[in-house]
Nucleic acid binder design. Sequence first.
DNA 1: AACCGATACTTAATCGATTTAATTAGCGGC
DNA 2: GCCGCTAATTAAATCGATTAAGTATCGGTT
Lengths: 364, 364
Amino acid sequence: MTRRKSSSPARPIPEHHKQPISLKRLAEHLGLSSATVSIVINRKPLSDMIPQETKERIWDAARRYNYRPNIIARSLRQQRTYSIGVLLPEFSDGYSALVLSGIEDYLLSKGYAWLAASHRHKDELIREYPHLLYTRAVEGLITVDTPYEEHLPFPVVSVSGHRQIDGVTNIVLNHERAAELAIGHLCELGHREIAFIKGQSFSSDTSVRWQSIRKVCHAMGIELKPELTAQLEGVSPSPEPGYAAAKKLIASGVPFTALFAFNDVSAIGAIRALQESGQRVPDDVSVVGFDDIYGAAFHIPALTTIRQPLVKIGCLAAETLIERISSPNGGKTSGAVEVEPELIVRESTAPPSRAQRPVTPSRT
Amino acid sequence: MTRRKSSSPARPIPEHHKQPISLKRLAEHLGLSSATVSIVINRKPLSDMIPQETKERIWDAARRYNYRPNIIARSLRQQRTYSIGVLLPEFSDGYSALVLSGIEDYLLSKGYAWLAASHRHKDELIREYPHLLYTRAVEGLITVDTPYEEHLPFPVVSVSGHRQIDGVTNIVLNHERAAELAIGHLCELGHREIAFIKGQSFSSDTSVRWQSIRKVCHAMGIELKPELTAQLEGVSPSPEPGYAAAKKLIASGVPFTALFAFNDVSAIGAIRALQESGQRVPDDVSVVGFDDIYGAAFHIPALTTIRQPLVKIGCLAAETLIERISSPNGGKTSGAVEVEPELIVRESTAPPSRAQRPVTPSRT
DNA sequence: AACCGATACTTAATCGATTTAATTAGCGGC
DNA sequence: GCCGCTAATTAAATCGATTAAGTATCGGTT
């Protein structure tokens, strides 16, 4: 304080300081320059030169007037926004929501914010949103189950994306292991006639998952009959597509004792279709789901499923993205990170009934 | 162009203009001042003075160099961020997700962005997040099922908030009508012994809903037995709390033929508990849920439920908030907006069975 | 010839912070 | 009494737009 110029006396601040105070006003009030205050508040190396007493004066005033740096001004100067975008198909699909939780946890801990956007499988939104987010000055993007081709001017981490795109890191499940777990479980129970529901064609996991299933079936000597293969159709996040797919499988007339669905939601729809056609789960048909969303455990019957560590995946995606954003070389590494699935056995699977009745098509 | 000074010739821009171009550079390249370009790009009234030819030159260049105004700089100057915060308990509860969809739709159409935050019922996060969002310069906040007392320095719209707080607009369901629909439906089917599951104490709808139920029960001559009243406990967004609550009701030994749950998720948990105790739904006990989340229709049995227009609620919340943000007087109006529920009859309700067996407690 | 008003722009301030380069005061040494 | 050094701070540029206020040119009028 020894050298504070007497020519610039501390200026008082009006009582009702409800509106945020600016650095400049705070500095004026302290009789210091805004540079000094900024340096101290941000604990810059330069502040080593500032005597303790002054620092305390600054901190006191900052607390008293509840000073909060204007993040917009800071962003402009630093060319950093500390925010990222998250693009996903749908908030209410049980899958994205869990990934989001993981993302949020990590970002919160690192001081990042995120702008979310759901495209509901509309091509236009899938195309537009990344640019909109870019306009919003995000520093990176996490896409969840969203195919995106174009090269973007910032790092991208893709959850269950599978294409190798420059600048995109993929977080992927070990799908082969997943198929082994599911089909192995059914085989062990004694099932041989297994039906499959593939994902929608727009789902990025669909193709990889299916390849894994084919490979594992072949290895285990399970025949993959075309009549026992159905595909989800439509963009509804409800169990309806699974219901429709299962109806088709049943209508084929080819008997099966087990069904491996693309996800838990479609498994739930499938179970409804089976029950409507007079089949009981798991007595007549075993069903295995995928994901282990909330609620899978509470469905009746409780779903046997392949759990994806969704929260962890979200966390990992966020971590990977932040790392790439922070890395000095711009994080050019576009590789893949793999996570492991887990088999959760509940009530929807059982050994095939001895009296192997063929599944008969119900009336439409 | 007649008067373009020959002293500042159009300056070429290097080929690889991948990185965004600034207004200044664009103006330099055009041989104009940035003010002129800004005025034209933003279609300010002043641009009426600019000849068509110049305007076209500007637009052409903007397109060619893919000019995008830096939103940070603009925000700083205009003191507007065109973004709001959304605070909710949980992404994966089926309820919030639908509200979010509505919010997103509306905001997208108005050019606003949103920062989302889920507090998972942690007091600390409920307290901190609004300030964090404020620091992030949101212009308003939508809270979903989140009790918030403190006065905030921007407009707040609260979905299913019920307190009258200065500066907060509530979007509420007509709970009395909802209770009438549910209880009326059960009465019409012939039920008299109705059990109830109240919401968690932290849920903002819990108290209002319960008052309405009491009122309607009284009006309809239904006795509200304390033993047939349970409350959800714990923060899990899964059906588990509903399961536990139903277990308690069953354990009371008091017979009931119908159950009105706080929401669909808890109804699903309750159904599981009933089935485990040997009751069949709806044969022995009818169950009515609340919300009509995705999946309610595909549960087995499909849930009869009171539908809240959740997407519409989100939309309405966003609209109300934007209106208050844009209104010149700062939108001091803190009132309430009411929406109407709807009864959706599916499979989980039926007339009480003639052979009115008392519900017997199952082994623990 | 001086003036006016319209046209077609430009200048410069501003938003609120960060950051680099400079400045000042005091002190010890010669 | 001057030099150089350190400690403590500050001035000024900067980020990229927006915007109020100003200016130069020209045709036309009195």
